[in-house]
């Protein structure tokens, strides 16, 4: 096992999500498979993924960075079109916890 149920519980807590014991068991198994899959990639590369980051990855130079020029923002209605808005704000009901 690459990951324990306790670790999954901790991740859920950090993400402010709650699951039943049954769900946690299932996720632990699923996560384990996903990690095993990613490990296969890691093993197929000499030097591991660290190697990709330090040598293989493309880098940009200072001159390629974005110039500091203002672009139009989106209209407020558009920004709030997928959510419940209130007076131009995003609004969320506070949890009682």
């Amino acid at each position: 096992m690459a990951i324990s149920k306790a670790e999954i519980e901790k991740l859920a807590k950090l993400a402010k999500l709650s699951f039943s014991d049954e769900e946690l068991e299932r996720f632990t198994a699923e996560f384990d498979e996903i990690i095993a899959f990613a490990d296969t990639i890691n093993q197929s590369i000499e030097g591991g993924t660290e190697q990709i980051r330090s040598v293989g990855a493309r880098m940009v130079s200072f001159d390629d960075l974005r110039p500091d020029e203002v672009m139009p923002s989106l209209p407020n209605e558009k920004i709030l079109s997928n959510v419940e808005g209130y007076n131009g704000f995003f609004s969320v009901e506070r949890s009682k916890k």
Binding site: R66, V70, M71, S73, L74, N76, G88, F89
Partner: peptide
């Protein structure tokens, strides 16, 4: 992003 950093403004108008 290219949104302005100007202080204030109506809520969620300097957003993309």
């Amino acid at each position: 992003c290219g949104c302005t950093t100007e202080f204030g403004g109506e809520p969620n108008t300097h957003c993309c």
